[in-house]
């Protein structure tokens, strides 16, 4: 029998935050559900379920992806990064900056915002983003508390911090 067909569970191997997982998942299971329910990664939020709100954003092989639209089967063999993976020991500069400008209010959208900002600054490597660059990178993220301007401010503060740290590292 061909791979996948007729098998109610599909074997999938994927890396999440650097850790390899070997799982058997339902064909219709979304990456979002695998992360939250099987792996206990709850920074990833179940928002609109159709790629419009950005609460479930993760990074898959360097791409910004709504985990509600990707089936876990489609993430096979790929590398997934969530907020847990970028701030396991201490808060990331982006998180520090968001706190500094009092951006988080209800907080539901924040993990997605952190991931989108991380994608812009650390994955795409744009450490000197314009306001438009930030708005573009965060164009997926809806925030019902309306902290949009603070997000832009925070991402620029984080970028400055990361730039300074990089310059310091270069001098060492």
């Amino acid at each position: 029998m061909p791979e996948g067909l007729g098998v109610r569970e599909v074997p999938v191997e994927l890396r999440v935050n650097g850790v390899k997982h070997v799982l058997r998942v339902k064909p219709y299971e979304r990456l979002l559900d695998t992360l939250r329910r099987r792996l206990g990664i709850t920074s990833v939020k179940d928002g609109c379920g159709r790629g419009e709100c950005g609460a479930c954003l993760v990074i898959v092989d360097g791409e910004l992806v709504p985990s509600c639209l990707m089936l876990t089967v489609q993430a096979r063999g790929r590398d997934v990064v969530t907020v847990e993976g970028i701030s396991s020991r201490s808060l990331h500069s982006i998180q520090e900056a968001l706190i500094k400008v009092n951006a988080p209010q209800c907080g539901f959208c924040i993990p997605g915002v952190v991931i989108a900002a991380y994608w812009l600054l650390e994955v795409k490597g744009n450490l000197n983003p314009s306001d438009d660059d930030v708005r573009e990178a965060l164009s997926t993220n809806l925030c019902r508390c309306g902290s949009y301007h603070r997000f832009v401010k925070a991402v620029k503060i984080a970028a400055e911090e990361l730039r300074a740290r990089k310059a310091l590292g270069a001098r060492d």
């Binding site: 790629g51 910004l64 992806v65 994608w119 965060l138 997926t140």
Partner: peptide, 9 residues
């Protein structure tokens, strides 16, 4: 087109 995340899929 869509948004930053939709464009990557």
């Amino acid at each position: 087109f869509g948004n930053a995340a939709v464009r990557s899929l």
